[in-house]
Design a protein around this nucleic acid. Structure first.
Length: 260
DNA sequence: ATGGTGGCACCGCCA
């Protein structure tokens, strides 16, 4: 169906280091709207020309060294905005509207260590998404919230649920905060298409030797959609192919396809 | 096994 729209999320861990992978992936027609996180570049140094030369549009909200988000798309967005709140000082959110589809791309704070100030910051940042959504949208709107949300939601979303229970990115307070945001009116699109399926991971820690081969992964990169939009999803999958390239990210893209 | 890898900035920090 030529009317479908595919939306993907990919933590690139530096857009400049992953530029060739991203450009090739887009050239293969893997998606129409690509949301990337951890671009790790300030706006002045974002490689916009490389995307424009490939006929792609890009909207970006970056900062030096850390964080940073961007939306790369085949069509020009009708509207773009940044930040979760006006006071938001870390570059973690960018939003774009394509017709009646609203795309919210976030890089949720990792949290560093359970009980730390950064962990509280993470919990509050996640909870802030509910106000963000309700201020801007109604659950009847077509909204997709994607990104590195840094939360594995269920035991099947991590490789060792017993051993990892209560650790950062797999902690009940994080899961409760995320569930509370989703209760506003969002569905986990990947789980809609893969209910109960384990060993579906979007992230493998660089620091664990042969983590991919040993399947020591996490599903922390998500595509959440309002029911109005989730009802139109026809597929959602984790694309493992970019991992086969030289210098891959420690994350891999998650793609959802919607009937437009 | 108390480490390991990777990116960016700068000689440490964050993931």
């Amino acid at each position: 169906m030529q009317n479908n729209i595919s939306i993907a999320t990919f933590n690139v861990n530096s857009i400049r280091s992953r530029l060739d992978i991203v450009l090739e992936w887009m050239a293969q027609g893997k998606c129409d709207v690509l949301c990337v996180q951890e671009i790790k570049v300030q706006d002045a140094d974002f490689p916009a020309g490389a995307f424009e030369s490939a006929g792609l549009f890009c909207a970006f909200h970056g900062q030096k060294t850390y964080n940073g988000v961007a939306i790369i798309s085949k069509l020009q967005p009708d509207e773009v905005s940044c930040k979760q709140t006006p006071e938001d000082e870390e570059a973690r959110l960018i939003r774009a509207r394509f017709g009646d589809i609203n795309v919210v791309n976030t890089y949720v704070p990792q949290g560093t260590e359970v009980g730390s100030a950064r962990f509280e910051y993470k919990l509050n940042w996640i909870r802030g998404m509910r106000k963000y959504m309700s201020d801007l949208f109604s659950p009847e709107d077509k909204v997709v919230w994607v990104g590195d949300l840094n939360v594995a939601r269920e035991p099947m979303d991590v490789y060792d649920p017993e051993g990892l229970q209560g650790s950062v990115c797999f902690h009940p307070d994080e899961q409760s905060a995320l569930n509370w945001v989703m209760e506003w009116g969002m569905v986990d699109v990947f789980r809609k298409h893969h209910p109960g399926e384990a060993d579906q991971f979007s992230f493998f820690d660089y620091r664990i030797p042969n983590a991919v081969k040993r399947r020591m992964g996490w599903r922390i990169d998500h595509i959440m959609a309002t029911e109005a939009l989730a009802d139109l999803s026809i597929d959602c999958y984790i694309d493992k192919e970019p991992r086969l390239k030289p210098k891959p990210s420690d994350h891999t893209p998650v793609v959802a396809v919607f009937q437009a």
